[in-house]
């Protein structure tokens, strides 16, 4: 028991090399590559992603167009590279807003309990009563299509998972000796929450946010696929798949390449979540 306790105490933020596992480094590697690709898109993309070339419609992969072209003659490789910018943005913003709102709400509910806890938990029940995607579609339909609406919808729906995670952690940690010690030293509730509870409670949410990023990415792609997210002709992987699906039997590369991009990015986040979870000793 003593040993278990001290490992818990030792599991701090240690992202130095040598502490992690293969999944962690693999995940960090994949994500690192995609972030670089997104950053350097203007430099490394061989063509303009929305430039149509009527002479080279639906041409298979070749030296000229490494991953071929689509039905408008746009270079798939360039579109995937530029699409990384949009899709990474979707992952980041689609996770950050729910994370912040959920942490705030869950923290208040877990720390103060009582009517505040009841209020927020009932609110969560209401949100959870609707199927996730249906609720999102309804919100986007009201707000009108576009990425802004998507982020707002994600924030309104996605915070519940984070709120529940943080609340559960707070409920446990609230009775931990070091939190009681902080209260007994006369610290105010905000200090106790921010300085003592939060740093110890947040790890689970950080790990969860990595796997949540996968979900957000797929949602973003799905929403775009349905025509409610990113609008054409912007390069985005979900739209590319949507546009390519009528040619799937004749021109597989139009859908396969962005599909592979989505899968690899999702895998990167997944591996990072696993590796981080292992490194920080967080059980999901």
């Amino acid at each position: 028991m003593k040993a278990a306790r001290s490992t818990l105490a030792r599991g701090g933020w240690r992202l130095s090399f040598g502490g992690g596992s293969l999944p962690l480094y693999l995940g960090m590697g994949i994500l690192g590559i995609w972030f670089l690709v997104a950053l350097l898109a203007p430099v490394i993309a061989p063509y303009d992603p929305i430039l149509q070339d009527a002479t080279a419609r639906i041409s298979p992969p070749s030296l000229e167009h490494l991953f071929g072209t689509d039905n408008f003659g746009r270079d798939i490789l360039s579109r995937v590279i530029w699409g990384a910018r949009v899709d990474l943005q979707i992952c980041v913003f689609g996770v950050i807003f729910p994370f912040l709102i959920g942490t705030f709400v869950g923290g208040l509910a877990g720390f103060f309990g009582g009517w505040m806890d009841n209020l927020f938990m009932r609110l969560i029940d209401i949100v959870l009563a609707f199927p996730f995607l249906v609720l999102m579609l309804a919100i986007i339909a009201i707000l009108g299509p576009g990425l802004g609406s998507f982020y707002l919808a994600m924030a309104l729906v996605g915070w519940v998972s984070y709120a529940r995670l943080i609340r559960a952690q707070f409920l446990v940690l609230k009775n931990a000796d070091f939190v009681q010690a902080a209260v007994s030293l006369g610290y105010g509730p905000i200090r106790v929450m921010v300085r003592h509870l939060l740093p110890n409670a947040i790890l689970g949410s950080v790990v969860f946010s990595m796997s949540d990023a996968v979900l957000v990415l797929l949602n973003g792609a799905a929403i775009s696929y349905l025509g409610l997210g990113v609008q054409p002709p912007t390069a985005e992987w979900g739209i590319m798949i949507a546009e390519g699906q009528s040619f799937i039997s004749t021109a597989w590369w139009i859908t396969a390449v962005p599909g592979f991009a989505i899968v690899s990015l999702a895998m990167g986040f997944s591996l990072l979540a696993d590796g981080l979870g292992e490194l920080l000793g967080v059980k999901e």
Partner: peptide, 23 residues
């Protein structure tokens, strides 16, 4: 209560558990 807690301190049983592990 704030005054009380400024003048009274507690020492806990679990030496590891009573200190914030991240500080």
């Amino acid at each position: 209560i704030a005054t009380l807690r400024r003048r009274t301190a507690m020492i806990f049983q679990d030496p590891y558990g009573s200190l914030n592990p991240r500080m």
